[in-house]
């Protein structure tokens, strides 16, 4: 408990001192005014709808990126022509700045779907890269044993590939989650849909409501930390349940 309370108190203190030193709420609001703003927002329907829809969009993008990244990793590993076709494209996707994608996609897709698509596009190369590395690292001696002992493809996948890939998949999921969250909200800011945390951040910025800008940012940070913690718990639970 102290491990959480002490750094929280230290950084809140630093924030309070900095705010006092700056002396202008417009530039740096105090923690108290941000807290007040959060309480005020928390009782509105818009707050919960925005947080809920943002969460849904990010989760959908993450799920899509994970599924597609996993499928492509297996495809490019086992199929030479797929490797030739898809691997360079995925590397290009990984190297392209998220803002370029957001602005490009804005021309083709409705605003509501952009954050999901962007989150998925950012997660896909991470999952693909991690699982490709995992597939390349699967123990060749175990695969030879599976062939010599007559394992079917399904059994080889279930008993050798999937357990070998578990640490890579877990790492990719945790990294992908953070990336999906950040890129999804960035897409919401640049292409604001109706109900979204990013849209609210954009509105607060335009209205020079700095405490509200901070309050929405705090919502993103808290949601991200809580969900990452829950995801970590779930992954650890699955790991313990299978060993």
């Amino acid at each position: 408990m102290l491990r959480i309370a002490i750094p929280l108190a230290v950084w809140l203190g630093v924030w309070q001192l900095a705010s006092y030193w700056v002396g202008r709420e417009l530039l740096l609001p105090s923690p108290a005014s941000v807290w007040e703003c959060l309480l005020r927002l928390g009782v509105t329907r818009e707050f919960w709808l925005s947080a809920g829809y943002t969460l849904l969009r990010v989760a959908a993008g993450l799920a899509g990126g994970v599924v597609l990244g996993t499928c492509l990793a297996f495809l490019t590993h086992f199929c030479t022509w797929a490797d030739w076709v898809f691997s360079p494209a995925i590397r290009v996707l990984r190297a392209t700045p998220v803002v370029s994608f957001i602005l490009l996609v804005y021309l083709w897709v409705s605003r509501t779907n952009i954050p999901t698509l962007i989150a998925g596009m950012m997660v896909l190369p991470v999952v693909w890269g991690s699982l490709t590395a995992g597939l390349n690292a699967v123990d060749g001696q175990l695969l030879e044993m599976a062939r010599a002992y007559g394992f079917s493809r399904g059994k080889t996948l279930r008993l050798i590939y999937l357990p070998s890939l578990r640490p890579h998949f877990t790492g990719a999921l945790l990294n992908g989650f953070g990336l999906a969250w950040k890129s999804g909200v960035a897409a919401e800011v640049l292409c604001p849909p109706k109900w979204a945390v990013g849209s609210s951040i954009q509105k607060a910025r335009q209205a020079l409501e700095t405490p509200e800008l901070f309050a929405w940012t705090a919502v993103i940070v808290v949601l991200s930390l809580v969900l990452e913690w829950l995801l970590g718990l779930w992954l650890r639970g699955r790991q313990e349940g299978t060993t």
């Binding site: 001696q141 175990l142 002992y149 007559g150 008993l159 357990p163 299978t242 060993t243």
Partner: peptide, 16 residues
């Protein structure tokens, strides 16, 4: 398919 081969290394599956 009529031979059973014991490898020089154990080649056990740590998760089984």
């Amino acid at each position: 398919g009529e031979t059973a081969f014991l490898f020089q290394e154990n080649r056990l599956l740590p998760w089984r």
